[in-house]
Simulated scan of single mutants.
Amino acid sequence: MKKIIPALIAVLACGGAAAASPDMGKLLATGGVSQVEGAGGGGITPWALISGYGTRDSWGANAHYTYVGTQDYKLNSYGVAVGIADRLELSLANQEFKGSLAPLDQLNIKQDILGLKLKVAGDAVYEQDSWMPQVAIGIMYKRNKGIGGLGALGVTNVKQLGAKDDHGYDYYVSATKIYLEQSLLLNATLRATRANQMGILGFGGDKNDSTRLMPEVSAAYLINRKLALGAEYRRKPHNLGVDNEKAYYDVFVAWFPTRNFSVTAAYADLGDITIFNPKKQHGLYLSLQAGF
């Protein structure tokens, strides 16, 4: 964080010289889509790419809505992201997690996520003759807003499920390489986290309360200029006795009809979520993004 803040100030200072309106100058799809926590990237993992289509002399912004539905749960996420000078990204997202099967059919958990990402090296598009990927560092501050629907059981806070905190930070570094000639994108992210189910079930727990490094990987193939096919994997910690947390993964199709709009559809597998509905959760992932 100490290294990010001075860089943030420098980028904002340079932003005064940037174009007053977005120039939409980046290649189609190179801003990624809105990751479920609000950052630019794939569906479940951030990439080193900066949100929006503004070039280094401009800026861009987008808004997203994402729905994930499994047999027993529903997740809605919506938020906004701003990319400045193709170097800095600021994002804000809200997640709402609901149960649909007894005994958790009244479950309702909300979480706010504030994100900051800074490109520190490389350029995924313009440095095609270099082995160096685009590299970005990021931080997400997450605050869980409590548990609704379980008041009759005396449960209103994630700490009552064994979590140590209802707020926490994720730190990550992402490396993204685009091979234009092969129409291929590869990404690797290493995340330091204590979050249980992204923070929906709090941070830390009765089994573990230390920050641990979790790998995440993505690959996408551009079928044509407007359609991409890809897959992602995200390893998760297992901190709670009541949550046999497993890795996330998905297979997705992303459609970019214009620079102003994109649609991402996926099959997502979220593993086990709590011992109260002890079965693997999988289903539809759908995300809409509008921007300029």
Rank of each mutant, 00 (worst) to 15 (best):
17 A>W: 11
45 T>A: 09
281 Q>D: 08
167 H>W: 07
270 L>N: 14
77 S>N: 05
131 W>Y: 13
236 K>N: 15
29 A>M: 14
77 S>Y: 00
229 L>A: 11
157 N>K: 11
127 E>M: 08
267 Y>D: 05
281 Q>F: 01
119 K>N: 08
240 L>C: 02
158 V>P: 07
82 V>Y: 04
277 N>Q: 15
115 G>H: 04
18 A>W: 10
120 V>G: 01
109 I>F: 05
229 L>S: 00
150 L>I: 06
5 I>W: 09
99 G>D: 06
63 A>M: 14
196 N>E: 13
285 Y>F: 15
7 A>G: 10
260 N>H: 13
290 A>H: 08
90 L>V: 05
285 Y>E: 10
89 E>H: 09
128 Q>A: 14
5 I>E: 08
14 C>V: 01
256 F>I: 09
274 T>Q: 07
238 H>V: 03
21 S>C: 03
72 D>T: 11
17 A>D: 08
69 G>V: 06
42 G>W: 02
18 A>E: 11
157 N>S: 12
224 N>Q: 00
13 A>S: 09
158 V>Y: 11
179 Y>N: 10
14 C>F: 07
132 M>Y: 01
56 R>H: 05
106 Q>G: 08
92 L>D: 00
184 L>P: 09
241 G>D: 15
117 K>P: 14
244 N>R: 12
39 A>S: 11
225 R>C: 00
61 A>V: 15
191 R>Y: 06
98 K>S: 04
46 P>G: 11
86 D>A: 06
229 L>Y: 06
286 L>T: 08
255 W>D: 12
248 Y>R: 10
96 E>Y: 00
144 N>V: 02
120 V>A: 09
203 F>E: 09
88 L>P: 07
45 T>P: 03
265 A>G: 14
115 G>Y: 03
291 G>R: 06
6 P>I: 04
9 I>F: 08
137 I>W: 05
72 D>Y: 10
237 P>N: 12
182 Q>R: 13
48 A>S: 10
219 A>M: 13
218 S>I: 01
175 A>T: 05
241 G>P: 10
147 I>R: 00
239 N>H: 10
258 T>Q: 04
280 K>D: 15
263 V>S: 11
191 R>P: 05
130 S>T: 00
119 K>G: 06
197 Q>N: 13
108 N>G: 11
89 E>V: 10
7 A>S: 03
74 K>G: 13
278 P>I: 04
35 Q>M: 12
79 G>P: 13
210 S>E: 13
135 V>M: 06
147 I>K: 04
43 G>I: 07
65 Y>A: 14
174 S>M: 01
280 K>E: 13
60 G>Y: 14
74 K>E: 15
100 S>W: 00
157 N>V: 01
140 M>G: 00
